[in-house]
Write a protein that binds this DNA or RNA. Sequence first.
DNA 1: TCATTAAATTGTT
DNA 2: AACAATTTAATGA
Length: 241
Amino acid sequence: MTFPVASPALPLLKRARAPTPDELQGIPWLAALQPDERERVVDDLRVAQVGAGELLCRVGRPATFWFGVIDGLLKMSNDTALGVPITFTGMPPGGWFGEGTVLKREVYRYNIQALRKSLVAGLGVETFHWLLGHSIPFNRFVMQQLNERLGQFIGAREIDRMSDPDVRVARSLAALFHPTLYPGVGSLLRITQQELGYLVGLSRQRVNLALRNLQERGCIRIEYGGVRVLDLQALREYLPQ
DNA sequence: TCATTAAATTGTT
DNA sequence: AACAATTTAATGA
């Protein structure tokens, strides 16, 4: 399948609604807030569904939201406005992103595209800044987030340079199972082999082979429409035989 | 709730 | 890229 054509950038406001209690439950940093802070945030939070191929934010657009993935899978591509240098990162449930640009009230530096139909939450820039000024735990969360993601991007560049497909799949998967960055993933990541191939830059067939190799080694278990991690450490350190 | 059908995903060549 | 096999989702009685 060819990837769906991107629709022109998206107003997340459209078709947005208030988050359900269940969805709030899955937002990791909410629990760290004081009741009054929490109230204001919940009031401002909006969730919206984005279709496969839709762009959430585009390089150069002014940052208006801090985004989080409730459900689904996004692709974050870090290409310069001029073009080539690319790194891809998957954005599974539980991931929040855009803080770097929202912090400085700049423009987005990434393209964020939905790999499949996804549920996304957005917190307005103003509220984001208000929180930074009021909650120390929130500041900690954001700092840790920035730090971890930096590590992710450095790792992603290394993955790009590696030639062995099995290793690339293993490392990319390990990154998606990052417990701090993507707490919503748990031990079962909902991702099709097609989507994984699109992220890693391999054909679906090759991904299928790689996954079965990884399963053979006891790192993962292949499930319909997803992958379950059995041994995250082994996945990180996977080497071809 | 169950049976049937369509759609999505996987396994294989 | 194509095809068959398998699994899930949707439909309607």
